[in-house]
Amino acid sequence: MKAIIQFLIMIALWLLLTWSLQPADVIAGIVISILTVALMGNIFLDKAARLFNPIRLFWGILYIPYLLWYILIANFDVAYRVLNPAMPIRPGIVKIKTCLETEMGKTFLANSITLTPGTLTVDIIGQDLYIHWINVKYDNDIEAQSYEIAGKFERILRRIFE
């Protein structure tokens, strides 16, 4: 099952890369996809098949514009801090807790945190994430920090990956 899913993803990527439907191209794509599955099959993600559930797919497609909107806000935030002559920054490394369990969920949460306003993931140990925050608002309040930084993504990522 996992091998079939990987094969389908690879052949779709090959057809997008070559952008032609001539017989020679398609046959080369099939051969190379089988070679790829044989070489890297046991390194590929374990639970890739569940991502093709229609409900998860719907939330996954909805997540892309949501993330892009927050990245745009993050860029205007950085522009304000960089161009201001006084440089209003108050940096520090804080610790937050996440409720996501799977490795894909934790990875995408960490990458989303890196791309959104004022935060950068430094390390991940179990359920704890250590975040470099450019404008620390609370003093050592883990609950409030977790809600402020990760809450807005966990709502959707829990529906996609858990």
């Binding site: 990987q6 993803i9 690879m10 990527l13 090959w14 890369l17 070559t18 080369a28 190379i32 996809s33 070679l35 790829t36 599955v37 070489l39 890297m40 390194i43 590929f44 993600l45 490795e103 894909m104 934790k106 990875t107 960490a110 990458n111 993931t121 390390d123 991940i124």
Partner: peptide, 24 residues
């Protein structure tokens, strides 16, 4: 860390596919 490992799992097959595309 876990993040680098998961992203490596995700893109490793694509790297092999892209190398074969460049060769062929």
């Amino acid at each position: 860390t876990l993040i680098v490992k998961t992203i490596s799992r995700l893109i490793m097959s694509f790297v092999i596919l892209f190398g074969c595309f460049i060769i062929i």
